[in-house]
Every structure is written in C-alpha cells, then in structure tokens.
C-alpha cells in the first residue's frame, strides 16, 4: 500500500480571491520521485495551486495530503482541527520551495542563507550544517561564492543559492514557482541545469514553468491549466505533440 500511495495528493481544491475564483476543484497527485510540470497562461491559477500545496495560500475548500496526512489540519480523535502556525512549520520542512524572486535573506551570505534553517529549525550542529552547505554549494556550482551576499550575486547565482537553501532542509518534495521567469535569458540555462540534475538524482519536484523544452525533457507528468482548472494532463510528449483540447492547442501554438 505504502509504495503505491502518492507523496502528494490534492483533492477537490478550490480557492477564490474575492469574487474571482482562481482554482475550481482541482485533483492531482504526485508520486515519489516524479517530476510534475504545470504550464498554462498567466492567471490560470498554476502559481496559486503550487502555493496551496504548502499552505502559503489557504485553500477555501479541498485538501492537500502529504504522505497521506492532511496539510494544515490534523485529526484529534474524530475532530478535525486547524493546525497552529508552528505545527504547520513542521509539515513545511518536508516541502522545499523556490520562488520566482529568489527571496534570499539579504543580510546573510550565501552560506549563512543555507545553514540558517538547518541550525535554527532542525537544531543541527553548526559544523555539520556548514559541511553540508559547502557540498550543496558545490552541487549548484557556486563553491567559490559561499561568502558573497545576495546583492553581489547575479540572478542565476541567487536562484541556485535559493535551491541549495531549500535542499539543506532535506525536503521530500521541491516546489518551484516559475524559478526562471525573473532571470535574464542568458542566465536561465544555469538554473535549469541544476534542476535537471536534481531530477536525475531522483528528487520529487513540482515545477510551475514557462520553459516548454524543460517540461518536455525532464517532466514525467505535464499538467496544462487554464481558467483555474486542469484542462489536460499526461506524459509531456503526448500532451505537447498531440494536445486533445482546443485551449491546449492554442496555448501551445503561441509558446512553442
């Protein structure tokens, strides 16, 4: 049973901002080790969906299950209770997130950004955290930038540090919210290369992206969203080369 249970399971998730309904009863699941790419036009709800997974946005209805446990709520006997922020924080350690705007801590160096949460949240020894951070910086190709502050790094370098910072918490799944959209075109490749490597290493990833070639080459599962619903989903090569739905066809015609 355990082996077939998806790592992440989303059931009937809905979210509105005011009167604007952003997500309409979304169902999806992510298996361990899978890379899921979510594509679609701006305003289709894909970022909101991603942010609902770790409760940065609180869904109006519907449930996200992580390892079979509901996110942001817990069973107390037969009563379902809302989680406190600190209980939620424990759940969030399992889900790393990479933002479009990097969100590195500007008052800390690259290395300090990476070791902050392992030391403060997971109470790991500093020497051990530094050792792991150095290895992670090496993995993202920035071992020579450990003591640089974020403002001294290029966008691509900042995003790679942000990826390393998330990985330092040893998450079960990595969420990427348009990780290359804020980058100059020549810097996109270095970030995608790190993400490709991560996928090859077997990391479970959910990626909201506009990079169609990345989605085609790396994803195991492609989701096309429009108007707050999943219009089409399946293996990326099928969806991209043989779209069934008219909205998918017209979107792909514009971006490919």
């Amino acid at each position: 049973m355990i082996a077939t249970m998806p790592l992440l399971n989303v059931e009937r998730l809905s979210k509105s901002f005011g009167t604007h309904r952003v997500l309409h009863s979304i169902d999806m699941s992510v298996k361990l080790g899978d890379v899921t790419c979510i594509v679609g036009p701006s305003g289709s709800g894909k970022s909101t969906l991603l942010r609902c997974l770790n409760y940065l946005e609180v869904p109006d209805s519907g449930v996200v299950f992580l390892d079979g446990n509901p996110v942001g709520m817990r069973w107390h006997g037969d009563t379902l209770r809302q989680m406190s922020f600190n209980e939620l924080a424990i759940q969030r350690q399992r889900m790393g997130m990479v933002f479009q705007s990097f969100n590195l801590f500007p008052h800390k160096t690259a290395l300090e950004n990476i070791i902050e949460a392992p030391i403060i949240v997971q109470r790991r020894k500093k020497a051990e955290a530094i050792e792991e951070a150095v290895a992670l910086l090496d993995k993202v190709g920035l071992s020579d930038r450990a003591h640089y502050y974020p403002k001294q790094l290029s966008g691509g370098q900042q995003q790679r540090v942000a990826i390393a910072r998330s990985l330092a918490m040893r998450p079960a799944v990595m969420l990427f919210d348009e990780p290359t959209s804020a980058l100059d075109p020549e810097l996109v490749g270095e970030v995608l290369a790190v993400m490709r490597q991560l996928a090859e290493d077997g990391m479970t990833m959910v990626v909201v992206t506009h990079e169609m070639s990345f989605a085609r080459d790396v994803a195991d599962h492609l989701i096309f969203m429009d108007g707050g619903v999943i219009v089409e989903a399946g293996p990326p090569k099928e969806v991209l080369s043989n779209p069934q739905h008219a909205r998918t066809k017209s979107f792909l015609a514009r971006v490919l």
């Binding site: 949460a117 949240v121 918490m169």
Partner: peptide, 11 residues
C-alpha cells in the same frame, strides 16, 4: 522574506 522563512519551516 517571511514566505521564504515559512517554507523553510521557521516558526
């Protein structure tokens, strides 16, 4: 900044 901290599991 607070979102990044939240996703790292900080209280």
């Amino acid at each position: 900044q607070t979102e990044a901290a939240a996703t790292l599991g900080m209280t």
